[in-house]
Amino acid sequence: MVVLKKLDQDTKAEIKELISEVIEIPVDKFTDTCKFVEDLGVDSMMALEIVAAIEKKYKIRFQDEEIPKIQELSNIFEFMEQAIKKHG
């Protein structure tokens, strides 16, 4: 478990790696703006698994109503940046 202070490039790469494992697509085959459902074939269970993995690793909580708003990787980064700002 990591307590996150800021979202740097290394952390972003780490999160992308973590997602790559869940969706079984290599990191160089998708970008921050690929749509999870339409472009990457992510289903509801994979989405929950991604959320759970990020929560566990970075000790961050996604609210249930926030999850459906996540359409692409950049949305996850935005959400995490806000969470870091809020909780310092």
Binding site: M45, M46, L48, E49, A52, A53, E55, K56, R61
Partner: peptide
């Protein structure tokens, strides 16, 4: 081990 909040939901089915 990790607490009920941290469990991987994909292990449930």
């Amino acid at each position: 081990d990790d607490g009920p909040q941290m469990v991987n939901p994909a292990l449930f089915p």
